Simulated assay, not measured.
Amino acid sequence: MSMLNDPSALQTIAVLSVIEQQLNGAIEQLGNVCAHAAGLARRTDWRTDAATRFHAGADSWGHDVAGLAGFVEDARNEVSAARVRIELRVWSPAE
């Protein structure tokens, strides 16, 4: 059955598209944070205990953020799949 008669379907598709774009932006920003954390760790002066601890902390934080990016990518993929499923129902011929 086609959902063309369901006005909320097209609105849902539009909202899901916006969410996808926002999640793409979040993934990009998390990538930037990871790169920044790695840069901070590389630039640390290794001659002090504090610098060694900072390096370890920045490195650990970068790995944690990278893990978050994976969760956001999974969420984006789920939103994308939901949008595609709705689009297929909207534009499929009525049975």
Rank of each mutant, 00 (worst) to 15 (best):
R89F: 12
G31W: 03
T44I: 12
E95R: 12
L30M: 14
R89N: 12
G25D: 10
S60G: 08
A37D: 05
V90C: 04
G62V: 07
R42D: 13
E28P: 00
G67D: 05
T12V: 08
R53T: 10
M3Y: 08
L88K: 14
F71V: 02
A26I: 09
A14F: 04
A9N: 03
S92Q: 14
M3V: 10
I27F: 06
A58N: 03
D59E: 11
H55A: 15
V90H: 01
Q22G: 05
R47K: 15
W61G: 02
E87M: 12
A94Q: 14
E78K: 05
G39V: 09
L40Q: 10
L16C: 04
I86L: 11
Q22P: 03
R85N: 13
Q29Y: 12
A50L: 12
E78C: 05
A26M: 09
A14H: 00
L16T: 02
L4H: 02
L4R: 01
S60D: 07
P7E: 00
P7I: 06
T48S: 15
V18E: 04
R42F: 14
V72M: 02
T48N: 09
A14P: 05
T48E: 10
A35E: 13
A37H: 05
Q11S: 10
M3R: 00
T12H: 02
Q22C: 05
E28L: 10
R53A: 11
A51R: 05
A26Q: 01
Q22H: 07
I13W: 02
H55F: 12
R53D: 09
R43D: 15
V72K: 00
E95A: 13
S2M: 08
Q11G: 07
G25K: 04
E28D: 14
Q11K: 08
V18H: 03
S17K: 04
V90R: 04
Q29C: 11
S60W: 03
E28M: 08
N32I: 13
R53F: 09
L23M: 08
V33P: 03
H63L: 08
D64L: 00
D74V: 01
N77Y: 07
C34W: 06
A94N: 15
F71Y: 09
I19L: 09
A51D: 12
R42C: 13
L68K: 01
H63M: 08
V72L: 01
I19Q: 00
V79N: 04
E20Q: 07
G70C: 05
R76D: 00
A51N: 14
I19G: 01
I19H: 04
G67T: 01
A50D: 14
L68E: 00
Q22N: 11
G39D: 10
L16M: 09
W61M: 10
I13A: 02
I13D: 04
I27E: 03
G57W: 01
